[in-house]
Amino acid sequence: MVQLPGVLGAAGPVHIAPMAGGPSTPALVTAAARAGSFAQLAAGYRTPESLAAEVASVRASGTTAFGVNLFVPNPVPISDAEYDRYRRLLAHEPGAVPVPKREDDDAWEDKVALLLRDPVPVVSFTFGLPDAATVQAFRRRGTVTVQSVTDPDEARAAEDHGVDALVVQGVAAGGHSAVLDPARVLHDRPLPDLVRAVVAATSLPVVTAGGIGTSGDVTAALAAGASATAVGTFVLRTDEAGTSYTHRNALGDPAFRETALTRAFTGRPARALVNDFVRAHTDAPLGYPALHHLTKPIRGAAADARAPERLHLWAGRAWRAAPTGAVADALATLVR
């Protein structure tokens, strides 16, 4: 096991993964730090201005050990014909509007510039690899850099780019897969086996995530060589998470029986509770971020109507273990 650098190494063995779209609130990040854990703000889908406000909010709480997660531009092109086909297929959905095809980079340059002007302790990257110059710019500012990967090949590429640590994400993780090539078939291997393979392939310290729901899962990951673990779905029902009412309730609803990887909501593989929308669009095309923008009005209408069958209910395979209550109490159950 390799020691994690900076504030990562000072935190306990269970971190909280960044979750874009609302769950990763300043309150969650602050509560995690006070519990001896480590958490990050999720910059994905935020404007630079709202991200700056969230960073300021965390700092105002007195929290100094935290990070920010960035979506690295790694678009998955979709043809106009295929986009229009999927748009027509969704036209009957409540809230659907004829959204023109939109490809953007989630304000990447502006967010990088913000975090270089006003450095935070940790910056992590997902969806793509930042160029080595960007990594070095963060390191010169004293920021620890972390890359999300899903296999040994991606881990080696990240090490070549100069990052300080890796988040190794297993296929059981909820929400978007961090896979660098979304068209690649994701192999379903036990998380400890994946950790061992990555540890053997690189010299970087590893935080691992994906399907962790018990203290036994944490122990197994650490025994395989991870320096720490991270949970996401496990804290979605806690008091400090910004999880929507409908999503929070669905995680505790016995009517939902399984999760699946789906491209239906965003055009990029993501694990969600299987609902009517997922079942209806098992052949959804690749196309991120275009399909994310296309389905956003549908998802917004579903959230307003509290209609879980049309909402993106991100969840890892261990979703049934997710407790309610304070996040500090939830984390404590994993480190007994």
Rank of each mutant, 00 (worst) to 15 (best):
G242E: 10
A39E: 01
A221K: 03
G95V: 05
E93Y: 02
H92P: 14
Y86Q: 14
A301T: 02
T259Y: 01
R46D: 13
A56F: 00
V195R: 06
Y245K: 15
H281F: 11
R184L: 01
V274S: 07
A81L: 11
V2G: 13
V7Y: 05
T47E: 11
L51C: 10
T238K: 03
V195H: 08
A20T: 11
A11C: 07
V274G: 07
T243K: 03
A330M: 02
M1L: 14
D153I: 04
P182E: 05
R279C: 01
G267M: 05
S177H: 13
G252D: 10
T238L: 07
A65S: 14
L114K: 12
A32S: 12
S24M: 03
V278F: 04
S227N: 12
A42G: 03
V146G: 01
T145M: 02
P94Q: 04
R317W: 00
E82Q: 14
S124F: 00
E240C: 09
V58E: 09
R336N: 14
V14G: 13
G210M: 03
A155E: 12
A264Y: 00
F234S: 08
L51S: 10
V167A: 02
G36D: 04
A201C: 06
N74F: 00
V231S: 09
T63R: 01
L8A: 07
E93T: 07
P269Q: 02
D160H: 12
G62N: 04
D239L: 14
H187I: 14
A284W: 02
F38D: 06
R196D: 09
V199A: 15
A39K: 11
P130E: 08
N249E: 15
A27M: 06
R263M: 12
K296I: 04
V195G: 09
G21P: 02
A201V: 01
R248N: 08
F127C: 00
A305Y: 04
E154M: 05
L186E: 15
N275I: 01
L331C: 07
V335W: 00
E154S: 03
T259C: 06
P192Y: 05
R248Q: 07
V146N: 02
T214H: 06
D105S: 13
L251R: 02
L90R: 09
P48R: 10
T150H: 08
T25W: 01
V123F: 03
G300K: 14
A35T: 08
S50N: 10
T134D: 10
A132G: 12
A272V: 06
G162T: 06
D239T: 15
Y86W: 12
R34K: 14
L41F: 02
L331T: 05
R268N: 04
A326D: 14
V76M: 12
A35F: 05
V72A: 05
H161Q: 15
L41A: 09
D283G: 12
E309T: 13
H247Y: 03
F71V: 13
A132Q: 14
R46S: 13
T246R: 12
A255T: 13
L204M: 08
V97A: 14
A301V: 01
L334S: 08
